[in-house]
C-alpha cells in the first residue's frame, strides 16, 4: 500500500467530529491563562473584562454545540430529546453566566444571590431529566433497576454527608442576613444538595447502566457525560465547602465548571459520531 493511499484512508476513517472537538478543547484551554491573569493585581481593565467575557462566551458556545447536535439528531427521536435536555441544562448554566457577568461586570452589583442562581440550579433539573430519560431508554436492553437503586443509595448517603458537613454546621444555622435573604438560603441549600442528589447520583446510575454495554459504541457518549457530571459535582462541592468553611476559593474552580460543560459538549460530539452510519 502506498503512503498516499494510507493517508487518504486515514483521513477517510477520521471522525468528522474530531476537528470540532479539538477546537472546543483548544478554545477552552486558552481560557486557563486568561483566568489566571484575571487574578493578577496589575491586570488592565481591558484584559480583565476581555477574559471575563471570553469565559462567558465559551459557556454559550458549549451549550449551543449540544443543542445543535440534539436538533441534528431530531426531536422526534427519543435519543434526540435526551441530548436536548442535556443541552438545555448547559444552556441554563450559560444564561446564569450571562446574568452573573451582567451584574458583576456591567452593573457592578453583587451577583450572589440573584436570578443567575435560578438558572445555575436549573441545570441540575435538566441534567436529571436527561439522565433518567437515557436510563429508561435502556431498560429494554439491560438491567436498570439495580443501577437506579444504587443511584438512590448514593443520593441518600450523599445527602447525609452534605447535611453533616455543610447544611447542619453552616447553612441551616446561619441567619438570613448572612445568607443574603430567603432566596440566598434556598440556593445555598440547593447547590450542595443538587451536586450529590441531582448530579452525582444519576451519573452513578447511568455509569452502571452503560457499563453493561461493554465496548458498544452507543455507550461512549454517555461515559463522557458521566465524567462531566463527576467533575461538576466534585468542583461545585469543593466550591460550596470552601466558601462556607472559609478554606479559600481559588480561580481553578472556575476552570472545573468549564471542564464539566466542555465534557458535556464533547459527549454530544461523540454521540454524533456514534450515531454515524458506518
Amino acid at each position: 500500500m502506498s503512503e498516499t493511499t494510507s493517508v487518504i484512508q486515514a483521513r477517510a476513517s477520521r471522525s468528522p467530529v474530531t476537528i470540532p472537538a479539538i477546537v472546543l478543547v483548544v478554545l477552552s484551554a486558552l481560557y486557563v491563562p486568561l483566568r489566571a491573569t484575571m487574578e493578577s493585581p496589575t491586570v488592565s481593565d481591558a484584559l480583565y473584562n476581555g477574559a471575563y467575557l471570553y469565559g462567558t462566551a465559551l459557556q454559550i458556545m458549549l451549550a449551543l454545540v449540544i443543542v445543535a447536535v440534539a436538533i441534528t439528531i431530531g426531536m422526534k427521536q427519543s435519543v434526540g430529546r435526551q441530548w436536548l435536555l442535556l443541552g438545555l441544562g448547559v444552556t441554563m448554566y450559560a444564561i446564569g453566566d450571562i446574568c452573573w457577568t451582567l451584574f458583576d461586570l456591567f452593573l457592578e452589583i453583587d451577583p450572589y444571590p440573584s436570578i443567575a442562581d435560578a438558572f445555575y440550579v436549573a441545570e441540575y433539573a435538566f441534567f436529571l431529566a436527561a439522565l433518567l430519560l437515557a436510563i429508561r431508554a435502556y431498560s429494554g436492553l439491560v438491567e436498570t433497576k439495580r443501577p437506579l437503586i444504587a443511584g438512590v443509595l448514593v443520593a441518600a448517603v450523599g445527602f447525609g454527608v452534605v447535611y453533616a458537613v455543610l447544611l447542619q454546621p453552616y447553612i441551616l444555622s446561619a441567619s438570613l442576613e448572612e445568607l443574603g435573604g430567603t432566596w440566598g438560603k434556598i440556593v445555598s441549600i440547593l447547590y450542595p444538595v443538587g451536586d450529590v442528589v441531582l448530579m452525582l447520583a444519576p451519573a452513578v446510575a447511568l455509569a452502571l447502566v452503560v457499563r453493561q454495554l461493554g465496548a458498544g459504541r452507543l455507550a461512549r457518549p454517555w461515559w463522557v457525560v458521566v465524567a462531566g457530571a463527576l467533575v461538576f459535582a466534585l468542583i461545585d462541592s469543593f466550591f460550596v465547602y470552601a466558601e462556607w468553611a472559609g478554606t479559600g476559593l481559588t480561580w481553578w474552580m472556575d476552570i472545573g465548571y468549564l471542564t464539566a460543560n466542555l465534557l458535556f459538549a464533547i459527549a454530544a460530539l461523540v454521540a454524533k459520531d456514534a450515531y454515524r452510519i458506518t
Partner: peptide
C-alpha cells in the same frame, strides 16, 4: 449489534 450495544444487549435482542 455487538459493536453497537455490546454483547449483553445484542444477546437480549436475539
Amino acid at each position: 449489534l455487538d459493536p453497537l450495544v455490546g454483547a449483553t444487549a445484542a444477546s437480549t435482542c436475539v
